[in-house]
């Protein structure tokens, strides 16, 4: 009985300790969540105000009006810019996945000095920021006769994404068993067939990671569209949002800008919500092998 009582006291003490530890852990997690989510809530709350409302953004949800959204939608030419963003992002991501997997395949498989050199050649592209060499790139494009159209930023996105994507895929390629390919080879599959039907489907987790990281970057980027596109009809969403930024004489119209931010992020949110199951399954499929 005494022993049982002591055990009860021991469990009670332990429970108190675990509870305090768990409480502190939850507190830290909640603080981090608040730091991350608070700006998003402030943006959304401010976007629901009229453009004239200048009260502090920290006063959350004091007004519910779609006036800022209407103004942002009409001033931005939202449908055209949305189409431009979709074409640029989808086209660039598609090309990046195709080119990067095809480049990573021999780099991951062939064990020669040339393959190693090519690997480091691609990796070296990660060291130099593209903004630093934008002037020589523009000169080269001009000499090649490539006009400033909506495809010029796509060319830049594909080129600048290749180093990271090749790095990602070649690392993943090394984890793909060679035996599967060998069995396909024995069955008479050509190199292209082996790549397209055996290797490419096994790269699904890496492809999803590449699509998410590069797609997000391309969707949000305004540097290349702003440098290479002159016509307003070819602007993407981030470039269209810049008009609300204002200057020193005319300060930013924050409520309209926040509404434009929400409109810009909305397609990505919809895509993620629609495909989140596929994303998670794809990443999980790579985690469990065999």
């Amino acid at each position: 009985m005494a022993f049982g009582k002591k055990k009860d006291n021991y469990d009670a003490q332990n429970y108190m300790k675990m509870s305090l530890k768990t409480f502190l852990l939850y507190l830290v997690i909640i603080v981090f969540c608040v730091i991350v989510i608070a700006p998003l809530v402030i943006v959304f709350s401010s976007s629901l105000r009229t453009p004239e409302n200048q009260t502090t953004p920290l006063a959350l949800f004091i007004e519910f009006s779609m006036a800022s959204y209407q103004k942002a939608f009409s001033n931005m030419n939202y449908p055209m810019e949305l189409l431009n963003s979709i074409v640029t992002t989808a086209g660039s991501v598609f090309c990046i996945v195709i080119f990067a997997t095809m480049a990573a395949y021999p780099i991951g498989r062939i064990k020669t000095k040339l393959a190693r050199f090519l690997y480091f050649f691609f990796i070296s592209g990660l060291i130099i920021p593209s903004q630093m060499v934008i002037v020589p790139i523009a000169q080269t494009l001009n000499r090649l006769g490539i006009p400033n159209t909506r495809f010029t930023p796509m060319l830049m996105f594909i080129t600048c994404s290749l180093p990271f994507s090749v790095f990602l895929f070649s690392g993943f390629m090394k984890g793909v068993p060679v035996e599967i390919e060998e069995s396909a080879y024995i069955d008479g599959a050509t190199l292209g067939r082996r790549f397209s039907t055996v290797v490419f489907p096994l790269l699904q987790p890496a492809i999803i990671s590449c699509v998410i990281t590069q797609g997000l970057w391309i969707w949000n980027d305004y540097f290349y569209p702003m440098v290479f596109i002159s016509k307003k009809a070819q602007y993407s969403l981030p470039v269209g949002m810049l008009q609300f930024l204002g200057d020193k004489e005319n300060p930013a119209q924050w409520n309209i800008l926040f509404a434009a931010c929400v409109l810009c992020a909305l397609p990505l949110i919809i895509v993620f919500l629609a495909l989140q199951k596929q994303f998670v399954n794809g990443i999980a499929a790579g985690a469990v092998k065999g």
Binding site: I134, V135, A138, F223, M226, V227
Partner: peptide, 12 residues
């Protein structure tokens, strides 16, 4: 970005 645009236009 505006400066980059200015420099690329002059450079090319």
């Amino acid at each position: 970005t505006s400066l980059s645009r200015f420099l690329t236009e002059i450079g090319s």
